[in-house]
Design a protein around this nucleic acid. Sequence first.
DNA 1: TGGTTCAGGACAGCTTTCGTCCGCAAGGCC
DNA 2: GGCCTTGCGGACGAAAGCTGTCCTGAACCA
Lengths: 321, 321
Amino acid sequence: MLQTSARLLKLLSLLEMRRDWSGDELAGRLDVTTRTVRRDVDKLRELGYPVHAMTGTAGGYRLGAGASMPPLLLDDDEAVAVAVGLGTAVSAGVSGMEETSVRALAKLEQILPPKLRTRVSGFRSHTVPVHIEGETVDPGTLTLLANACRDHDRLRFDYVSHDGTSTYRITEPHRLARAGRRWYLLAWDVDKQDWRLFRVDRIEPVTPTGPRFKPRDLPDDDMSAYIGRKVALGAYQIPFKVLMHLPAEKLRQRVPERWGTVTPVDENSCVLESRADNLEGTAAYLSTYGVEFEVLEPQELKDQLTAMAGRLLKAAGRPAA
Amino acid sequence: MLQTSARLLKLLSLLEMRRDWSGDELAGRLDVTTRTVRRDVDKLRELGYPVHAMTGTAGGYRLGAGASMPPLLLDDDEAVAVAVGLGTAVSAGVSGMEETSVRALAKLEQILPPKLRTRVSGFRSHTVPVHIEGETVDPGTLTLLANACRDHDRLRFDYVSHDGTSTYRITEPHRLARAGRRWYLLAWDVDKQDWRLFRVDRIEPVTPTGPRFKPRDLPDDDMSAYIGRKVALGAYQIPFKVLMHLPAEKLRQRVPERWGTVTPVDENSCVLESRADNLEGTAAYLSTYGVEFEVLEPQELKDQLTAMAGRLLKAAGRPAA
DNA sequence: TGGTTCAGGACAGCTTTCGTCCGCAAGGCC
DNA sequence: GGCCTTGCGGACGAAAGCTGTCCTGAACCA
């Protein structure tokens, strides 16, 4: 019964689109009698989607919030909006949900019609990049990697190593993970016959992806610990401590969880402690709070701020201090 | 045939979840024979969702990208990620899609299960707010307003007017629009018996929404022109012009479309022209590019930068210039 | 009270579904 | 090329589901 299923889907999409529909309206849209509409509504309810109904002159059907997510029926524009929104969240680094966001994005990108895909990439190139912390990751690359991991597709890419040289890699990707502000790909390097951890912002993928491979046992049971160790070896993070003239609660609202710790000092000020891999970006970031603050440590951050102040004074057409 | 529809949906969700599935696997998951799976796959194809199939040992079914969007079947985590992502995009002001994003978000929020809704609001409070340009709009308020417009629900709210006084309003909301970096609600003020344009960041909604009303004719055919005129009366935007020491193409990638115009000067520099309603925010924004620049006008922006430089020097523990 | 709207039982006629069984075609591997 | 695996789809019959047309109730609103 193709008609029935299709109609059910259409009914659901109508209900998602607007809040109140009368039985007659729905019957007209679906080209069936109201009796069938009632039966279809019952079916949706049996499927677990709570369709509320009100009798009387102001009555009608309304889709409510149930126990589980009903299928989302998006029109083209909305699908683009969702893709762009997820991409923004991923590259802006909304804390605590990176992997899930990437997974959802990967799911969406796989089924996104080509014409919408071009619209998405068009939007992305005009999106405000969060350039405060330096490198941003391309959500397109991220979803490609996520899909390759999920589907066990071999992956080839050019990798720019630390010293700037570029090498060609053939890998079996296994995990995508985030540590601090960076994304990493854990993959088996086919040529080197060993596990490698790649920084995603240095990967330039070569499409299309290769043949499927059989997943290997991961080098450690606790992946986050493993990656944490590997990353720590790089030891790129510099701790800093700043006194902010802002009540602790207010700052907490503006500092992402896990990014740093906020300790109240008195009613109107607090100390922010965190780590940075890029002091220039940190300096710029701190300045955007628009409040008075004092760097407690390290000296390098103070130097960075002094340099930045010099740039600003120059921009304002005055001699640097 | 409830079973058939439900199974079709489940099949779709399986296909969205992973890329390759063999007929046997699917049959197992769905508790039917492979023959039925084949028939179901056919049904999906008839519905317009392209399911590709490969024969042979590495064969299987795969959902491809078709002409239209299939229903998105999200698990709980993914639904939260999408909601948070859309919220981020909305409050970050991803250009050119504001209304669509809000619509999609409104749609999602209406059907989001309560337990997921609390997770979303939890995440939002820990999200990096884009505090560069001053006021941000609460996505929750925005979706509430969008839904009220869509459903023609009367809306009551406290409104903080320009001079800081708060008034209670009963309105019939008609349109939600964005101009520049701000959101506006066009609504009929029931007490005043006239159209009013409210700034969303000054609205404090009173829930629940009121009874439904019958939409009125809008005060103008061209809404964007109308709102543009209304907003222009406020005349809050200050034009500025900055010489950036950065190639025009590079800057274009980082400046959102419509936000401002970029004019190349030579190979390594260009002029950025735009408007701001908040010079302090603009100063902070410009400083985050991490490149040398010079303010051409206005003088106020130069003053702002000087003041900011002073703050930075103080933060670095040196006397202000 | 009358009008409007959803609710759902009963019935008849028609369509669809699904498992079983079958031969066929296409891709990968030895 | 032979062989295995995997998808493809026709035929068939029993069972189940779907839909429109009745109809009676019940809730809500003015």
